[in-house]
Simulated assay, not measured.
Amino acid sequence: MTGTAPGPAPAGPFSQAERDAVYRAIRLRRDVRGQFRPDPIDPAILRRLLQAAHDAPSVGLSQPWNFVLIRDPAQKRRLHDAFRAANTEAADRFPDRKALYSSLKLEGILESPVNLCITCDRSRGGAHVLGRTHDPATDLYSTVCAVQNLWLAARAEGIGVGWVSIFRHDDLRAALDLPDHVVPVAYLCLGHVTELYEEPELQARGWGRRAPLDDLIFEDAWGQVPRDGI
């Protein structure tokens, strides 16, 4: 008896409770910096989060991601030093807002029990990947989908996630011993949290505000307002 590939399954909406849970995770997801607790993450939960990331869509099913876990205190200190050097440079780029910038906590590298770097292997799938033939960056976009999957799953699990983007790439690559064809896409801090901001922290702290959705929707071409509303 020969096996057959599984075909399409019936599609339809989730139940109201399931839909509510999905939208709640999206709406209440936060970038965590200073609310981490030191207690460890259960390995079963961490495995579920990594599986959620691995379940992300990817161009040509190339799955270009890898997951580098960082738990060693000495390695965390090395990466924290790299962040501090880059953050000092970054503060100088906001001369009119430097005091506010310097008051913001922008990472939880030492406080969070688990750091995680999600990378993109630019060589995975070979020279020609279905769907990537005319836009080479789609493997990077795919990796960001994995990041978002993990972030939403973490919110549902009660795990906080903070994305640390203020690094010199060369410092990050050197610390993690990344091969030349592997790009660090997201450096994340993960841990249990007791409380979260009710709105994005940068909005709560006065750095910026979320734009109204209606200002961002066009139809058929750039700048054209939808005719019938949405």
Rank of each mutant, 00 (worst) to 15 (best):
A5F: 15
P6D: 07
G7Q: 08
G7W: 02
P8V: 13
P10N: 08
A11Y: 14
G12M: 12
P13F: 15
S15G: 13
Q16C: 00
A17P: 01
E18S: 14
D20Q: 11
D20S: 14
D20K: 03
A21S: 10
V22R: 00
Y23L: 11
Y23K: 00
A25F: 05
A25E: 03
R27Q: 09
L28C: 10
D31K: 07
R33L: 04
R33E: 01
F36R: 03
D42C: 12
D42G: 05
A44Q: 09
I45V: 15
I45C: 12
L46G: 02
R47G: 10
L49N: 02
L50R: 00
Q51Y: 14
Q51P: 01
Q51H: 13
Q51C: 12
Q51T: 11
A52N: 07
A53S: 12
H54K: 05
H54C: 11
D55F: 15
P57K: 10
S58N: 06
V59G: 00
V59A: 01
G60S: 09
S62N: 07
Q63P: 00
P73D: 06
A74K: 09
K76R: 10
R77P: 01
R78C: 12
L79A: 01
L79K: 01
A82N: 04
N87C: 14
E89H: 13
A90E: 07
A90V: 08
A91C: 11
R93G: 09
P95N: 08
R97W: 13
L104E: 08
K105D: 04
G108E: 03
G108P: 02
L110V: 13
P113Y: 13
V114N: 04
V114W: 01
N115A: 14
N115Q: 11
C117Q: 01
I118G: 03
C120N: 04
S123V: 00
R124A: 06
H128E: 05
H128F: 15
V129L: 01
L130R: 09
D135K: 04
P136C: 01
P136I: 00
Y141M: 08
Y141W: 13
S142P: 03
L150A: 15
W151A: 09
W151K: 05
W151F: 13
A154E: 05
R155W: 05
A156W: 07
G158C: 10
G158D: 05
G160W: 04
V161W: 02
S165C: 14
H169E: 05
H169L: 12
D170A: 15
L172K: 04
L172T: 02
R173V: 11
A174G: 07
A174H: 11
A175P: 03
A175R: 07
L176G: 09
L178Y: 06
P184K: 03
A186C: 12
Y187Q: 02
L188D: 00
L188S: 02
C189P: 00
C189Y: 02
H192G: 06
T194E: 10
L196K: 07
E198G: 13
E198P: 06
P200Y: 13
E201I: 15
G208I: 12
R210P: 02
P212Y: 06
L213R: 11
L216Q: 10
F218I: 06
Q224N: 09
G229P: 03
